Simulated assay, not measured.
Amino acid sequence: MNKTVGNTAGSPKRWVVMGVSGCGKSEIGQRLADRLGIAYVEGDNDHPAANIAKMATGTPLDDTDRNEWLLGLQARIRAAQQRGEALVLSCSALKRRYRDLLRAGDPALVFIHLEGDRDLIASRMRQRPGHFMPVTLLDSQFLDLEPLMDDELGIRLNIECGPEQIVDQVLQRFSKDVEI
């Protein structure tokens, strides 16, 4: 079980919805932001064009490829934190060091790790035509994945539940920390 955040009730919070490609980060992130009435940022939109082109050809990104992207997302998180604004961001955040880099923008950053069966996620990926991330890269994502650890602020949730149930679980877990 992951730690909960010790913020006072109603204080703004920054959230990262994380997991492998196809797990539902964008949908859950948008739904959570809508429910909380706060801003949502699709992290994939901040990828440099070279990263998108590389993934589109079926080549996985390496740490060097991800660094500029993650630093840009960190800057977004830091800016929201400095302005006292809440934010939901979707980002794979597959490795602990990536999450540490994002967390450097806000030490109280909360991670929502969406987990699921590889076959279920692959079937979801096949149902999103035109997305730059091909199903062939899913195995590389699972190889890179370092699940959210107990000492990280956040929650791990199975994606077999429906999207609204997942958002409900997040809000129930953190209800003392946010105005719902």
Rank of each mutant, 00 (worst) to 15 (best):
G105S: 07
D46G: 01
A39F: 06
R128H: 00
G10C: 13
L148R: 03
G22C: 06
R173S: 10
L153P: 05
G22E: 09
L32V: 02
R97H: 12
L171V: 14
L143N: 14
S11E: 15
F111Y: 10
S92Q: 01
R78P: 02
T57D: 13
I180L: 15
M149L: 15
Q165A: 12
R173W: 06
L32W: 01
L89F: 11
L102C: 13
Q82P: 08
A79L: 12
A108V: 04
N7A: 08
A108M: 09
D65E: 08
K176V: 02
A79C: 09
I77Y: 11
G37K: 11
V110Y: 05
G43H: 06
I159M: 05
I112S: 04
K25M: 01
Q127V: 02
D151H: 08
M149D: 14
Q169P: 03
K95Q: 13
Q165M: 07
E152V: 05
P129N: 03
G105M: 08
I28Q: 00
F132S: 02
A86E: 00
L143H: 14
V17M: 03
L109F: 04
N45D: 15
E179F: 13
G37N: 11
E160A: 12
L138D: 07
A108S: 10
A104L: 09
G105F: 11
R76K: 15
A56D: 09
D144K: 09
G116D: 10
R66V: 13
Q172M: 12
L153S: 00
F111M: 10
K3T: 12
G105R: 09
V88D: 07
I52T: 14
V170E: 01
K13T: 13
M149A: 15
A9H: 15
E27I: 00
G84D: 14
D117I: 04
I159N: 06
G24L: 03
L157S: 06
H131K: 02
R118A: 09
I155E: 10
L73K: 08
L61V: 10
S11K: 12
M1I: 01
I155G: 00
P134Q: 03
M149W: 12
A33S: 07
V88N: 08
S175H: 13
L171E: 09
Q30W: 00
G116H: 10
P147T: 01
R156A: 06
L137C: 11
T4K: 07
L87R: 12
V135S: 01
A33L: 05
A104I: 06
D151R: 06
G162F: 02
V5A: 09
M133D: 02
A56L: 02
D62S: 13
L153N: 00
G84R: 12
A122M: 05
V178D: 02
E152S: 01
G24H: 05
R99P: 09
K3S: 10
A53D: 14
I166G: 00
A50Y: 09
N7V: 11
A79W: 08
N67D: 13
D100K: 05
L148H: 09
A49D: 14
A53R: 15
I112L: 07
K95H: 08
